[in-house]
Design a protein around this nucleic acid. Structure first.
Length: 246
DNA sequence: CTGCCCACC
DNA sequence: GGTGGGCAG
């Protein structure tokens, strides 16, 4: 993890989602990275590693209504140059894994289309993508049903030492993270996950860590637009038991 | 069984 | 576009 920590020494913060009054601030790691606010999600694209640093979006219970079917049409991000990454995944043995899940985007044709932009894709071990990562996505949708509205950030852990695939040398992350914030109540709560890019039979609880710990690993500063006392409180410890799992 | 994740043709 | 597979609920 040391190399990962070193890589993210330089941190540039942005008021990305804060501008949308969503009380959530996500930083990026490099001035050269491209930040785009799509209709359904925001993305920080890392050109060096040819994938997103993170994607962030709010998911509401209303958006879980299924208006459209899965599109399955992978296309370059029209707003980000250098995202024509189809050739690199082909035959690589890795899935074109969604960071923002297509199943979270069934409320809108536009959102569904956006979820298949290659800026939202990252090389995932098929067993990881279709297994534990999918489980976390499904759990997140259940939590959205229960808590009405959640803020979600997902991304890879990127570093120079990663192996690469394709002519564009797309980095294959060893880990992926997800952070979820419930900001509905007077006492908001957050939970973070860090999972190896491999199949796993373990319970999701095994991959829980505090937001503070994830911030140390990624170099990102999550939720910095929240009032300081609340931010400190919810980031200090992830309470899996606080999130009812059904 | 369906839904979601896909690859491949 | 279609077909087929793994996996979880």
């Amino acid at each position: 993890m040391n190399r990962i920590l070193l890589y993210f020494v330089i941190i540039i913060s942005s008021n990305l989602l804060g501008q949308n009054s969503k009380n959530i601030e996500i930083p990026t790691s490099n001035k050269k990275d491209t930040i785009i606010n799509h209709f359904a999600y925001s993305v920080s694209y890392n050109h060096k590693f040819r994938q997103a640093n993170w994607v962030a979006y709010q998911l509401t219970k209303k958006e879980l209504i299924k208006i459209v079917d899965r599109a399955d049409k992978f296309i370059p991000d029209p707003l980000i140059k250098g995202t024509d990454n189809a050739i690199d995944y082909k035959g690589s043995g890795f899935d074109r894994g969604h960071l923002a899940p297509a199943a979270d985007m069934r409320f809108s044709e536009i959102a569904m289309k956006e979820s298949f932009y290659f800026s939202n894709m990252t090389p995932q071990n098929p067993s990881f993508n279709r297994g534990i990562w999918n489980s976390l996505e499904e759990q997140t949708r259940k939590w959205t049903e229960k808590y009405d509205s959640l803020y979600i950030v997902a991304g890879p852990i990127l570093s120079d030492s990663l192996s690469k695939i394709g002519i564009h040398q797309i980095a294959v992350p060893k880990y992926f993270f997800k952070v979820i914030l419930d900001n509905r109540h007077k006492h908001p709560k957050a939970i973070a996950f860090l999972i190896l890019n491999e199949g796993s039979k373990e319970d999701l609880q095994k991959f829980v860590l505090s937001v503070d710990e994830l911030e140390r690993i990624t170099g990102y500063n999550f939720f910095s637009l929240l009032p300081d006392d609340i931010e400190i409180q919810i980031e200090k410890k992830s309470c899996y038991e606080c999130w009812e799992n059904n």
